[in-house]
Design a protein around this nucleic acid. Structure first.
Lengths: 222, 222
DNA sequence: GGCGTTGGTGAACAATGCGTGAACTCGTCC
DNA sequence: GGACGAGTTCACGCATTGTTCACCAACGCC
C-alpha cells in the first residue's frame, strides 16, 4: 500500500490509520518518488493526492495505468473545479474529498480492495515442464497437476513471477504473507518452501526450480 | 454501445474502459447527436449523462423509450439526488453517480447486459452429462431436468461460462449479485453453492462440477 | 578441520475457512 | 392475513492449512 501526499501531516495520519487496519504502508511525498516506489514495491493499493509538486497526481495516475491495474484512491481538494476533478477521478477507483475523516478513507480502502483484489492479476506462467496458471490457480508439473495449498501457490507464483531474482525471507513474508501481522517468523517461509519443493521438485534435496541462496534467500530458476 | 457525455475527457476514459472489455463503442457529445446515433447505430446499450447541452439526458431518454427497449445507464452528478427517481421512472436500467470509477461503470454495464439480454449473451452450455440453457434457463443433469431458483441458475451459469477459472466469493457477489449493494455476506455464496450442489451433484460431498478451492473460492470443472 | 551461523526436518499446536442446519426477512400468491 | 418460496444471515463443528519450535545438517569463514 502506497500513500502519496506532499503534506507530511496528512501522510502520517493516513498511514497511521491504515497501519492500524493491518496494512503495510509506504510513503511518498512527490510524484517522482511515488513512481519509483510503484516500481520497487508493487503495492496493491495507492492513495494518491492530486496536488503534488514536480509531477502532479494526474500524471502519476496515467503513467501508472500504462503498466498496472492497481486500485487507486484519489484525494482531491473540495475547492477545485468539479470538471477538472472529474477528469482526474476517472482513472481512479474511488476518490475522497479533502478534508476527510481517516475513518472514511479506511472504509473506502477496504471497499476498493474487496472489489478489485482477487480478479485482476492472474497471468499464466509457462516454464519448461512447469506451468502456473493464475486464473485456475493450477500448477502442472511434467504434465500432471499438483495440488497446492493457497500459501504454497501464492509463494510459488510470486517467486516465478520474477525468475532468477533473489528474495529474502523478510521480503517474501512482506509480499506473500498478510503484511498485517506485526512480526512473523522467517522460518515460516522455510517451511513453506520445503513443502513446495516436496510437491513440485523431482528430487527435493537438489531442487530444480526453487534454489536456496545461502545467507540471502530463495530464487526461482526458470 | 453508445456513450453520451459532453465532457470529452469523461467520454474518452469511459470508452477506453469499455473497449478494453471488448465492446464496440460509439460516442456522442450532446443530446441531438445522441439521438442521431441511436437511429443509425442501434447500440445494445447506452451510457447517458443527464447534464447535456441542447437536449438534456432525460429528454433523450424519454424520446428513445418511444421506439426502443435498449438498456440505459444514467450518469448523474452526486448532488442531483431527487432526479434519480425520475430517471428510473423514465426507464433507465441503472444509474451511476459522478464521479465514478470506470471499473464500477464497467461492472454495471456487465450487470445490466446480463439482465437485459438473457438469450443472446447466454448460449447453450454443454458438458458431459450437464447442459445449461441460457435461453430457457433450463438445466438438465444426466438427462433429467433440474429445477433451479433464479439465483442458483445465475450462479451456475456464471461459473460454467468460465470453466476451470477460480472465482472468489467477493467476485461472485459482485458479478452474479447486484453490484450496487455495498456489502454482502460472502457466506451467502456458500449457501447457494451448497444448494446448487445438492441439486446437480450426484454426491454433494465430493462434487463433480463445482469444486471448492480452499482459501480462494469456487471453480467449475467441465 | 573446528565452530558459529544459516537452512532443513518433523511434529505438535494454533488459526483459518468451509459446510451444515436452522432461523430470519421479504415478497407473492391464494 | 396466512402460507409458501426464495434469499440471506448466523453460530457451531470440523477438516484443512499455517505457524512455531526443538533439533539436526550443511555451509563457510578462519
Amino acid at each position: 500500500m502506497l500513500v502519496v501526499d506532499d503534506e507530511p501531516m496528512v501522510c502520517e495520519v493516513v498511514t497511521a490509520y491504515l497501519e492500524r487496519d493491518g496494512f503495510d504502508v509506504t510513503q511518498a511525498a512527490d510524484g517522482r518518488s511515488a513512481l519509483e516506489a510503484l516500481r520497487s514495491e508493487r503495492p496493491d493499493l495507492v492513495v494518491l493526492d492530486v496536488m503534488l509538486p514536480e509531477v502532479d497526481g494526474f500524471s502519476v495516475l496515467s503513467q501508472l495505468r500504462r503498466t498496472s491495474d492497481v486500485p487507486v484512491i484519489l484525494l482531491t481538494a473540495r475547492t477545485e473545479e468539479p470538471d477538472r476533478i472529474l477528469g482526474f477521478e476517472l482513472g481512479a477507483d474511488d476518490y475522497v474529498l479533502k478534508p476527510f475523516s481517516p475513518r472514511e478513507l479506511a472504509a473506502r480502502v477496504r471497499s476498493v480492495l474487496r472489489r478489485s483484489m482477487p480478479a485482476a492479476s492472474a497471468p499464466r506462467l509457462d516454464f519448461d515442464g512447469l506451468t502456473i496458471d493464475g486464473a485456475t490457480r493450477e500448477v502442472t508439473c511434467d504434465g500432471s497437476t499438483v495440488e497446492l495449498t493457497p500459501k504454497e501457490f501464492d509463494l510459488l507464483a510470486y517467486l516465478a513471477a520474477s525468475p532468477r531474482q533473489v528474495f529474502s525471507r523478510a521480503q517474501l513474508l512482506e509480499q506473500v504473507w498478510d503484511s498485517s501481522a506485526d512480526y512473523q517468523d522467517p522460518s515460516t517461509v522455510t517451511v513453506h518452501v520445503r513443502r513446495l519443493r516436496k510437491k513440485i521438485e523431482i528430487d527435493p534435496e537438489t531442487p530444480r526450480w526453487i534454489h536456496t541462496v545461502w545467507g540471502v534467500g530463495y530464487r526461482f530458476e526458470p
